[in-house]
């Protein structure tokens, strides 16, 4: 199929990387998956379609862009290897891909938790405390600011929000996390209430500096 791996719409032109054919954008996941089963080069449009969402998601989970990029690469490799086992029914590919992503970040978080310095970060005492205005002010970008807020949520609410901010719906999140949709909706409501309080303390006062 001749696809190469693209760095995205803002990729440097000096890279010898071509974007997938324009008509791929209109093709359904099911079509692209069917093509990718026969030719791994045909996986490129799926990569292009989901790379940014996965990068955001892994960043919200891991808090570091290099780690997020490494995790994203591993997720794509795992997805390619698992594609022959995947049975497509409608829009199931996206949920399946993010299930792989969820597994990957959980594995990486477990590896981090075994490192002594990470245990201090994971302490329960940081939960419910607002990120300082200084921390938000020096955050390099919007994603970092969002990550600082998400870090203050309890784990169940945070996991739902990480997937939400990566663009998934409540039903997809329920399928990925193995919960019922009602539990997801409740968790996200609680999270929004908590984030509203956190933002009231800090984000509102710092947004203007960056806009």
């Amino acid at each position: 199929m001749g696809h190469r791996w693209s760095t995205g719409t803002r990729a440097r032109s000096s890279q010898s990387i071509a974007k997938p054919a324009p008509h791929d954008a209109a093709r359904s996941d099911a079509d692209l998956v069917a093509a990718a089963r026969l030719d791994r080069g045909a996986f490129a449009p799926l990569y292009e379609r989901y790379r940014d969402d996965l990068l955001r998601y892994t960043f919200y989970c891991l808090g570091d862009w290099d780690d997020a990029a490494d995790a994203t690469q591993q997720i794509f490799v795992n997805a390619m290897a698992g594609l022959p086992r995947f049975v497509d029914r409608g829009d199931a590919f996206r949920a399946w891909l993010f299930r792989i992503a969820h597994n990957e970040v959980v594995t990486r978080q477990q590896q981090r938790a075994r490192r002594p310095q990470s245990q201090l970060i994971a302490g329960a005492e940081v939960i419910d405390r607002a990120p300082s205005p200084e921390a938000l002010a020096i955050a390099a970008d919007d994603h970092q600011r969002l990550w600082l807020l998400l870090e203050r949520l309890p784990p169940d609410r945070r996991r739902v929000c990480e997937l939400r901010f990566a663009g998934l719906t409540d039903k997809e999140i329920a399928a990925i996390l193995g919960k019922n949709a009602g539990a997801v909706r409740t968790a996200q409501s609680r999270a929004i209430a908590q984030l509203r309080d956190l933002m009231g303390i800090s984000l509102a006062s710092t947004r203007g500096d960056h806009d």
């Binding site: 990729a11 790379r51 990068l55 960043f59 990029a69 490494d70 690469q73 970008d141 663009g167």
Partner: peptide, 13 residues
């Protein structure tokens, strides 16, 4: 959440 990921992360992937 709508901001694109940084280019260096995309390039690394």
């Amino acid at each position: 959440s709508l901001a694109p990921p940084p280019d260096h992360a995309r390039l690394r992937v």
